[in-house]
């Protein structure tokens, strides 16, 4: 464990909690892409199956349960509890165009052709593009609630911190995982446009509205 990975995990946890509290407190999921949240639940489910097979540490196991629990709770709130506030008309990204090719890619490019490893690879690839429906929805509505921009900021920051973690681990431990690194770079690049808007607008107290 190093400082980049720890702050990365805490940033990820903060994002997940911010979103959960936003929906719970405002009793509304307006502006939130349910499709992205389904993809994240799928990412955690396919990545954390090793909960059943191996124990690494209390931290590792507890964080995985928290991530999975919050992800499904968020999906439940969007599609069941606060379904009336779900903005389906703007959440129209064709996720099948992501899931199917990525499923194929996970079979072709992986470290080991075993079920757990292919599912882990699938979850790594999927996570890198899972935010696209959410970013697409914001581009369609042309704006985002400020709390949603904080959610996206911490979510984007977490993988950027993981990139630093991998530089650290390569330098000090000689460890590196090309699949996770390439997917992590793609994932972080997808947030660059948002990071620019977040820093130039939201941090200056303005609302995040795309070029109107």
């Amino acid at each position: 464990m190093n400082i980049f990975r720890l702050t990365g995990d805490l940033s990820h946890l903060a994002a997940i909690i911010i979103l959960l509290l936003k929906i719970w407190k405002t009793r509304s999921c307006a502006g939130i892409s349910g499709k992205s949240q389904i993809l994240f639940a799928l990412v955690f489910t396919t990545r954390y199956l090793d909960l059943l097979t191996s124990f690494i540490s209390l931290y590792n196991t507890s964080m995985k349960f928290i991530y999975i629990g919050c992800a499904y709770a968020t999906v439940y709130m969007i599609y069941a509890k606060f379904k009336a506030t779900y903005d389906g008309n703007h959440d129209t990204f064709r996720v099948e165009f992501l899931v199917v090719p990525i499923g194929g890619l996970a079979f072709l490019v992986n470290h080991d052709f075993s079920p757990l490893e292919i599912l882990w690879t699938f979850s790594i690839y999927l996570e890198s593009v899972a935010i696209l429906p959410q970013l697409f929805m914001i581009s369609k509505t042309g704006e985002a609630e400020t709390i949603t921009t904080h959610y996206l900021f911490f979510l984007g920051l977490y993988r950027a911190l993981y990139l630093m973690n991998w530089i650290w681990r390569f330098y000090f431990e000689g460890f590196f995982d090309m699949i996770a690194i390439v997917a992590g770079v793609v994932q972080t690049i997808l947030y660059c446009d948002f990071f620019y808007l977040y820093v130039t607008k939201v941090l200056k107290g303005k609302k995040l509205s795309l070029p109107a």
Partner: peptide, 10 residues
């Protein structure tokens, strides 16, 4: 074993 350690990231 080594592979277990590698998958110690979330």
């Amino acid at each position: 074993d080594e592979s277990e350690k590698d998958k110690d990231e979330l």
